[in-house]
Design a protein around this nucleic acid. Sequence first.
DNA 1: GCCCCAAACAACGA
DNA 2: CTCGTTGTTTGGGG
Lengths: 258, 258
Amino acid sequence: MPELPDLVVFAENLSRQFTGERIVEAVWHGRGGRVSPSAEELPRALVGRTISGVERWGKEICFLLDNGQRFCVHLMLSGRFILAPTGKHPHSAILTLGLERGTLTIQDPKGLVSVTLDPPPRNVPDALETNAELLQRLLAARPKMGIKAFLIDQTILRGIGNAYADEILWKARIHPRSITGKIPGEALHSFAGAVHAVLDGAAERIRREHPSIIGGEVRDFLAVHNPSRQLSPTGHPIRVETVSSKKTYFTDEQILYE
Amino acid sequence: MPELPDLVVFAENLSRQFTGERIVEAVWHGRGGRVSPSAEELPRALVGRTISGVERWGKEICFLLDNGQRFCVHLMLSGRFILAPTGKHPHSAILTLGLERGTLTIQDPKGLVSVTLDPPPRNVPDALETNAELLQRLLAARPKMGIKAFLIDQTILRGIGNAYADEILWKARIHPRSITGKIPGEALHSFAGAVHAVLDGAAERIRREHPSIIGGEVRDFLAVHNPSRQLSPTGHPIRVETVSSKKTYFTDEQILYE
DNA sequence: GCCCCAAACAACGA
DNA sequence: CTCGTTGTTTGGGG
């Protein structure tokens, strides 16, 4: 499952590639996936529209349409975008969008992808809006959660998944079992800084190393949430435990606030 | 806090004493307590009515009125009924009912008592309706609870509180940390039998030893939920632990099903 | 690994 | 040690 930095680059590349293209066909394959408002409505809403841009919205990729509507795709666990020659329908295709110069398919072997036309606005900040004051406010509002559960809760802050939560907590030197309300105010600047350093840095790296990526995920450079590493970049052994019901990678460099 | 057997005897005694009496005054003292529909409505609904009976309903004591309405009192943690000479208002009085031949006061130092006129019917069986088939059905409906939490949950079965839950589980030889869905069907007859043996036996004992009791609680004869005992009646040391967030007394005679 | 829902659990106040 | 309410955690299914 791609996470926020992957999605940032996907959106850039999809936008570059498809802005200005008209949708000539939309086929819902009916073999899984969730669609709102309905599979019948979808082609009527999409076909004939021109894509005026593509952007990341939390963990979703949204196609902006020329009539002001937004068509958003959540890739969930195993969804991915695929470019195929016009008319081709790859395996486990959920939705195929025929465009003027090619076919964009959303594929998902697990069939969990969710697509939504004009999703309701969410009153939840995006992870890239993070700063110390915002963190302070969000932490104060939920003072007795595990910090790991807090970071990946999309109703609190949008965009961070399991892998990057570990990366951020390691960068901030905060133990994943720490309690939200116990993290001292003095730590919040470096915490907020870690959010940006990790997410922006990862997006920049993916952008540089995979300039036209629109699918899959790039994880090989992660510092601790990385099964191929035994030691953190600073040489401390990486532990793997279940924290807040999630597989969690961390080291003893991280301070436990509880 | 009186529990079911105490309340059974309270209801008998209040019924004997007040059936046929007319309510001539009802004073809500406004120093705590919860009243439904409202403190203003209450005197209008009660004054002038004649009490046609008193009965226990779950953990509540209900006064049946001659117009078919029911006036129910939940004593919560520290509420109690007190008889006072007409016109007297004891300390921490919540509600005073002036009757033809005396004054019945509901007193509660913690101010948690709740009184309700015509409480809505609850679709929940009473503990004294317990039999093996009922237990089977209720356990199957909530198969992954702790059995202690199950027994004291008033939305599942009405009337059992913390102390008698321990007594019943000891009598049934079921460990309080057992999981509802893991208790074997063969144990349900003795489990249901234990519910009745404990509750009916306690009521009978209270009735015999305190023939006119309407307040307080009698606990001195409890087998395990009893700080004055070190050993169960069968000579096993009594353990005290927190189970399902409640102080729980049990012994190693009780089988853990999990 | 994702989201949603429902059930179970814990904490707090009245 | 009671009942609500609210918030958090956990488990299952798509």
